[in-house]
């Protein structure tokens, strides 16, 4: 998968591209409006990450160029502004998703994967981790050919874990992924624990392995190592 990252903050550009490269994406970087235009006209990308707060031109204007040269690319807007107007005009112009700074890499990966699935750029609609298979179309979890009934939140959670496998995910990151902005409630992390226990129980009952490891009470890691 080829990703074009348009971001004027070099530090941010490096962290994002390092992470995405580890996740087996091919990253192309552009740190200003002119470079982004140039790279857009030369290559085709599957995913474009666009910071609309570019210093040499409003990133929103780049959307037209993207639509012209990279019609098939999935577009995720990144903005420091939590401004609903930017969000609306960005999505109106054809962006597929909108992320507000600060965001987390695990969240970015989930959004990219979701976008790829929606655009059907993923080679298959299933994600497999050992004996667990997630059917992204039917939104179900299958263990050893047996379908497990999950609530919507439980499904979202297991999908998030599988996409971000082998990564330490803090409780806050999980809560934010599941509940967006509403999660400035410290005492509601309990419900993550509740959901998690439900998933663990359902997987075990179906004869699967519990791959969810607790990390010092701070977070979780989905891993078989």
């Amino acid at each position: 998968m080829k990703v074009l990252i348009i971001e004027d903050e070099i530090e941010l550009l490096i962290v994002i591209s390092n992470y995405l490269t580890k996740e087996k994406y091919v990253c192309v970087l552009a740190e200003n409006f002119a470079k982004a235009r140039e790279k857009l006209s030369i290559y085709e990308y599957d995913i474009i990450l666009l910071d609309i707060g570019l210093p040499d031109g409003n990133g929103l204007k780049l959307i037209d160029t993207i639509k012209k040269y990279n019609h098939y690319a999935g577009l995720i807007i990144i903005s420091a502004k939590n401004s609903l107007d930017d969000k609306i005009s960005g999505l109106d112009k054809g962006a597929d998703d909108y992320m507000t700074k600060p965001f987390q890499l695990s969240e970015l990966n989930s959004r990219i994967r979701a976008l790829l699935r929606r655009r059907q750029l993923d080679s298959s609609n299933t994600l497999t981790f050992n004996e667990l298979t997630i059917d992204a179309l039917a939104k179900t979890l299958i263990i050893n050919g047996q379908e497990i009934k999950l609530t919507k939140k439980e499904y979202d959670m297991i999908l998030y874990f599988v996409i971000n496998k082998n990564r330490v995910l803090t409780k806050e990151a999980i809560a934010e992924h599941l509940w967006d902005d509403n999660i400035d409630l410290a005492d509601s992390y309990d419900f993550i624990y509740t959901h998690l226990n439900n998933i663990r129980r359902k997987i075990k009952n179906a004869g699967g392995t519990d791959y969810i490891t607790t990390i010092y009470g701070m977070g979780y890691k989905f891993t078989d190592q």
Binding site: E9, L12, V15, A80, K101, P102, L105, Y216
Partner: peptide
């Protein structure tokens, strides 16, 4: 206020990556 979000993002992303590097409990906390 908006500009503050960018350095916070950089710090957060770096910390998130640091979290993946198999540190001991104290450091992770």
């Amino acid at each position: 206020s908006h500009e503050i979000q960018t350095p916070i993002s950089i710090a957060l992303l770096n910390l998130e990556e640091l979290l993946q590097s198999g540190l001991n409990e104290q450091s992770m906390k």
